[in-house]
Computed example of a mutant assay.
Amino acid sequence: MKLRKVTAASAVVLALALSATACGGDKKDNDSGGSGGGGKIKIGIKFDQPGLGLQKPDGTYAGFDVDVATYVAKQLGYSPDKIEWVQTKSADRENALARGDVKFIAATYSITDERKQKVDFAGPYLLAHQDLLVKAGSKIAKGDDLNGKNLCSVTGSTSAQNVQKSIAPKANLRENSGYSECIAALQSGAVDAVTTDDSILAGFAAQDKYKGQFKLAGLKLSNENYGIGVKKGDSATVDKINDALKKMVSDGSWQKAVDANFGPANYKNEPAPTIGNIVK
């Protein structure tokens, strides 16, 4: 009789333990990091950059950065349905990583010495160049032509800083929260030019509603090495992402993503960069 009582008590303890384990397992689905195996991963991208990171009307996402991030996530153990896309605007990228809002960011994130003080980078995975987007009939042909003109860029971008420091210090710089607002201002005549990376500008110019209205000046005002931002000190994730990027280039997936996203805009992209090699 005493033996049966002990056995029954043990069964209750075992049942409670199993129940607690099952409840604890749900936490993994909300994980922003980890190593796959059924959890989810949060990745920062832009939502308003055609050809790079765009949230479409149906709620899906498309663009080169999206394709790169999806490939990398798969190599880390996360299938596309386990990715939660998080909008990360230029001015908030460092904070998003520091807060742990995302595991990594692929959002036209140029690698700079200043940013490397706050975050770590994998890559680069694309070499772009700062350029100008102007109206098709514009006479702006070089950086000096911007002095006295109305120029638009995005708050927190390296492009705006570059213009103020060395390209056209007398330009009337207008900074908006997103490039969509800048493109609309260019179309209306409120600004004379928009400056950022040529890859971003090409994506906007290729949209059906803007076809034939704008042109790239083709100035190559700077080299922009796009990297994948990771929380400072997370060298293990940086190494894993670099391995994934190398594989993406070697198996042809990188070039396929370039052709699919930039081909329609006739964007003359640079060859795939060597991972770890920053072009000054």
Rank of each mutant, 00 (worst) to 15 (best):
A257I: 03
A11L: 14
V13I: 09
A206S: 14
K215S: 10
S157A: 14
L216D: 12
Q117I: 04
D243F: 00
N162R: 09
K42M: 10
F204C: 10
K256A: 15
S90H: 09
L132S: 11
S180R: 11
N223F: 05
A217W: 01
F204K: 09
F47T: 06
A22C: 06
K103V: 00
G178K: 15
Y125E: 12
G25E: 15
Q161F: 05
L221T: 11
D234I: 02
D197F: 04
P273F: 00
L14H: 06
F262D: 08
V191P: 05
V12D: 10
E224I: 07
G123W: 01
N277L: 13
A217F: 01
D198E: 15
R99H: 05
N95H: 03
V163D: 12
L151H: 03
F262K: 01
S177F: 05
A9R: 11
P271K: 08
L54G: 03
G143S: 14
D198F: 04
S153Y: 01
T108N: 15
G137K: 13
L97Q: 06
V238D: 12
G59F: 03
G33L: 05
S32M: 04
L221F: 10
K256N: 14
S35Y: 04
P273V: 00
G189H: 09
D65R: 02
K209F: 00
M248F: 06
P50R: 03
G53V: 06
I140N: 08
F204S: 11
D145Q: 10
K116N: 12
D81L: 01
K103S: 15
G25I: 04
A265W: 04
I228Y: 01
G59T: 05
D81K: 09
K247F: 00
S188L: 08
K116H: 01
Q161G: 14
K40D: 15
I183G: 07
W254A: 02
V249C: 02
D101Q: 14
N223Q: 13
S253D: 12
N95G: 02
N242L: 03
L146H: 06
G212I: 10
G156E: 13
K209R: 13
D251N: 07
K232I: 04
V13F: 04
V230F: 01
D192A: 07
I275Q: 12
V279Y: 13
D92H: 10
Y210P: 05
Y267W: 13
N261Y: 07
G203V: 08
V72Q: 09
W85Q: 07
G156F: 05
A96E: 14
W254Y: 10
V134L: 07
F214A: 11
G44W: 05
G44N: 09
D251F: 00
L127A: 06
K5P: 03
K268C: 04
K231Q: 14
K40N: 15
K211N: 07
L245S: 07
Q255F: 02
F262G: 02
G212R: 11
I278G: 04
